[in-house]
């Protein structure tokens, strides 16, 4: 196997000469002063700040920010150019105010800002978002429906589970694949909460209606295991 390792090392050494190295000295993560939230918000409020400056500020907010940043960052959640980095900044901030800001995007947004906000609500497991996400399951924009299915699965609970189970036979292709993924997530969550009957019923739905044989097999095995437990 020696030649394989030699090739690996060679490829990596080649990378050592990459232009990234030349850029590192001035803009490396460790050498940079860690700015506080007030400094970062000042950048975001500066009309002359470049997209790079704004992206850097939002990235740093993900590390140091709190709900106080929302007055500046929340409006960016619907800005086509800045929405992703705005979510990057606030997604890890543990405050209900962040969930509320993301729900406002779901209520009004379209396109990628909407898809992103749905994804963030799923990552944050925002139970209050379930009703509006259920309505997005049959959205005309397939990416919105896909994001909603996965988010509902991450959030879990009875209402989300019912909606996903109902969506399984009504969807096809990637939209159905997202519903399958959502059902797995919801079932695992229910099982973790010792709601074994409810979890088993979701696995039954997958075993019966999933498009892939590998999914049917795993789902049937998990349903059986839950009933035996």
């Amino acid at each position: 196997m020696q030649p394989k390792s030699a090739v690996l090392a060679g490829a990596a050494l080649l990378a050592a000469s990459s232009s990234a190295m030349a850029q590192k000295a001035s803009q490396s993560a460790g050498n940079r002063h860690v700015r506080n939230q007030a400094e970062l918000l000042k950048v975001l409020q500066n009309a002359d700040a470049s997209r790079k400056d704004r992206a850097d500020a939002l990235r740093e907010l993900a590390r140091v920010g709190n709900k106080g940043c929302l007055k500046v960052v929340a409006p960016l959640l619907q800005d086509e150019e800045q929405a992703d980095m705005a979510r990057y900044a606030i997604e890890p901030i543990p405050s209900p105010a962040v969930d509320a800001a993301l729900r406002r995007v779901v209520a009004k947004g379209t396109g990628r800002p909407l898809v992103g906000a749905i994804g963030s609500l799923g990552a944050r497991r925002d139970v209050k978002a379930v009703p509006m996400l259920v309505k997005k399951l049959d959205d005309a924009d397939a990416q919105v429906a896909i994001a909603a299915a996965k988010a509902l699965g991450s959030i879990g609970g009875a209402e989300a589970s019912r909606a996903l189970a109902a969506a399984l036979p009504k969807t096809t292709g990637f939209a159905q694949a997202a519903v399958v993924e959502g059902l797995f997530r919801a079932a695992e969550s229910l099982a973790d909460q010792k709601q074994t009957a409810a979890a088993a019923s979701l696995y039954d739905a997958l075993a019966k209606g999933a498009p892939l044989d590998c999914v049917k097999k795993v789902a049937a095995e998990r349903a059986e295991a839950l009933r035996k437990a």
Partner: peptide
Amino acid sequence: MTGPASIPEGRAETATTRRDCLKTAALAG
């Protein structure tokens, strides 16, 4: 919004891109 004078990729990737359209078509079938 002030930023670089030309960011064609940034514009192209907003809203519904060609890739999204292709993917959406594939999603259905």
